[in-house]
Design a binder for these strands. Structure first.
Lengths: 236, 236
DNA sequence: CGTGCTTTTGAATAGTATCAAGGCCGGTGG
DNA sequence: CCACCGGCCTTGATACTATTCAAAAGCACG
């Protein structure tokens, strides 16, 4: 695939395009790697050395951390305009893994290029800082939720996260098919519990399901399950 | 209390002192607020409007998020050199609360001063970005742990977090006295469970306790409890 | 030397994970 | 096109873990 220029990038949310000066965009064009990943491919492998940062041009990516018995905790989703990894020190490794959930295009910028970028584009650094700071706040809230919520609440939240990140099609069906295991990996629970809770939600008329497809009929109802908590938004 | 200059600040870890130019340090001196908080006072109240960022000069601060039934989740500790809050947009509120655990001195910098700082000190912004990005990684790992660990493991981790943040005195006793409730608030559990697990650890010779005082006898033993997990460090 | 808080312990209860088995579906190869 | 196979979904039974509730004991403070 031919490498496209950041200048004419289809993704108007990319921090490079938005906050780097024209002369720098050209330099990045020369030095970036643009990589195409098919669905379900690893962009970042846990514990591999940090060489730079990945900017997501298109597609959908899940970011996870592997724990006991290879069980994965999905910590967040990264969409176009978001980024993966960070400027790492020597010999540092990625503490998380990242896998595409759709065919995706990702731009990779090496550490040393990043350093130059930082020097020349203060506005870009500011926005990068805000990105991390926003994500940090979301993580802090998610952390409280995982620590305090019961399974029903955590799984309701997982559905809302999917809803927020992937949206619904015309039939109110989630624009993504996740296995029960995946949903459990968001909520911090088990596939069986996901099943039990989904069945419960269905009986309450909050959702309906057909195989793996899940229709969200009443998002407010799901939100109400969480309303006891002092909720701050975990969304963008 | 007389406001001290950043130039001669006793805290050599402060990002302002380390990464702002001399002329800017003077400007900050004029425009910052230096506030003394006694132990157990609120620096940030949850849901109050974001007016700026707090830089911790000295003391110890816990950062928490309040959930169901006023139950608190301690999401992290902030020590000298760390910062609280972030550059917020209009009408944004703090999603977390922060409370001193010791007598503490904190420097407050308003949003509009921060903006000027950002413009004039690219290196400062870079370091701020790295701070948030480091904290984000720690939160992602903590999140997995809270989602996957059982109570025994979570409470062992809580002790290690206290150990890392506050250290031991000569008698191997934690340099901080936390109530069972507080420990439960770190681990995402209940005071009763904390009790049960602490008693267990004591019988295994990992710790000993005298009232609220906890002696860590075998940190490696506590670490071993967590070793089944692909552990990345949640510490600095 | 009370008073009120936290700690400590145990018992009862509820919640959750684990295990096992059958059914459904999609894909593959005959 | 059909039969087979493997994986995931689904459900229920079981065992375990954790929370809740209650009550006594210890401690700090006035």
């Amino acid at each position: 695939m031919k490498k496209s220029s950041c200048e004419f990038c289809e993704n108007s949310q990319c921090l490079i395009q938005k906050y780097c000066s024209p002369e720098w965009i050209q330099k990045i064009d020369e030095r970036k790697y643009q990589i195409f990943f098919k669905q379900n491919k690893d962009i970042i492998t846990e514990n591999s050395p940090i060489l730079g940062v990945f900017f997501i041009l298109s597609g959908k990516v899940k970011v996870f951390s592997t724990g006991l018995n290879q069980r994965q905790q999905i910590v967040r989703f990264a969409n176009p305009g978001h980024l993966l990894g960070h400027r790492g020190a020597e010999n540092e490794v990625y503490p998380i893994g990242a896998k595409t959930m759709d065919d995706s295009v990702v731009c990779f910028v090496e550490n040393k290029v990043l350093d130059d970028l930082f020097e020349g584009n203060p506005r870009f650094v500011q926005e990068l800082m805000k990105f991390y700071s926003r994500e940090l706040r979301k993580m802090e809230i998610r952390m409280k939720n995982l620590g305090q919520m019961n399974t029903r609440e955590k799984i309701s939240e997982a559905l809302l996260i999917l809803l927020e990140n992937f949206g619904l099609n015309e039939q109110n069906c989630l624009n993504v098919t996740f296995s029960r295991q995946d949903i459990a990996n968001i909520a911090g629970s088990t596939p069986e519990q996901v099943m039990t809770q989904l069945t419960g939600f269905e009986q309450e008329g909050l959702i309906s399901k057909a195989g793996r497809k899940i229709n969200i009929l009443n998002p407010e109802g799901l939100q109400n399950i969480l309303s006891k908590y002092n909720q701050h938004s975990i969304f963008a």
